[in-house]
Write a protein that binds this DNA or RNA. Structure first.
Length: 265
DNA sequence: CAACCTGTTCGCCA
DNA sequence: ATGGCGAACAGGTT
């Protein structure tokens, strides 16, 4: 489920716990979501500390605790964050629970493609600082996009949009939405895009990211009916521009929907 | 019952 | 060395 805007929405779910102490940490240490992380250090350092602040970047989230604890969470395919009032007893898929006096901050992930990291130090961990330029930033400029497309020139543009090193936060539905708006066929080689197409791609990427963040990131409300997202999964889905039946196929290893009339190679 | 899935990572190949 | 691709991961839903 989670792409850029959904990640932002879930990050905010824990905001009500900012400033409060964590009185207990409950976790399913043997679960795959903790692969590579020290659950004992997480438990030791977060218990008794105060939840200070959080940030999201692409699909990554980082939660900071007093005493130098940094909790990283990636939601994978099926992860969610939520809050439960009072003392909380985790269910089967609630792999991490930060219990505070008045509420529990819960990370749930049935499929366990998500991931929990824990670091300790004065500054944010390296993996956080080393991320690609955010789509809304100055660094996500024409040169950056053009270089990235050239580097992956023989891959279909749909697959390239899913690479987090170039388009951090973009996932399957956003990629289809962006290509539909930029009027580019998903199977087109990334290296074949003309300069005007590159400009349209960058503009559509920024638009979809900003609007999704504003609409979905706040309260999970629905984008306008004119967006492709409402059509792309249902059988008989049509192009919002002129009603032509959408094409469906696997491109870049993922289910892709597009309009053969307005999206061109 | 079988197929499908809003994500990443690995090994193989060119 | 670098990049493209298919498989694998795991459980829920259709």
């Amino acid at each position: 489920m989670p792409e850029l805007a959904e990640v932002e929405y879930y990050r905010r779910q824990w905001d009500c716990g900012v400033g409060a102490k964590v009185v207990a940490v409950r976790l399913h240490a043997e679960k795959r979501v903790f692969r590579g992380a020290s659950t004992s250090e997480l438990r030791r350092r977060v218990t008794g500390s105060r939840f200070v602040e959080s940030r999201a970047r692409g699909k990554q989230m980082l939660f900071r605790f007093s005493g130098g604890g940094w909790l990283g969470i990636h939601l994978g395919m099926s992860g969610t964050l939520r809050v439960e009032p009072g003392p909380f007893h985790p269910g089967k898929h609630d792999h991490l629970v930060l219990q505070q006096a008045k509420r529990a901050l819960v990370f749930r992930d049935p499929r366990m493609f998500g991931r929990v990291k824990f670091d300790h130090g004065k500054v944010a961990p390296d993996w956080w600082s080393e991320g690609a330029p955010e789509i809304g930033s100055e660094m996500f400029n024409a040169t950056f996009v053009s270089d990235f497309l050239r580097r992956h020139g023989r891959a279909p543009i749909k697959a390239v949009l899913l690479l987090q090193n170039g388009f951090p936060g973009v996932g399957n539905w956003m990629a289809d939405e962006i290509l539909w708006r930029a009027r580019i066929a998903p199977a087109a080689w990334a290296g074949s895009l003309t300069l005007p197409q590159q400009a349209a791609l960058r503009r559509a990427t920024r638009f979809v990211s900003r609007e999704a963040m504003r609409i979905i990131g706040n309260d999970f409300s629905e984008p306008p009916r004119s967006w492709l997202i409402h059509q792309r999964w249902k059988s008989g889905g049509v192009c919002p521009r002129h009603g032509r039946q959408l094409e469906r196929g696997t491109i870049g290893g993922r289910t892709t929907a597009w309009c053969a009339r307005c999206q061109r190679m």
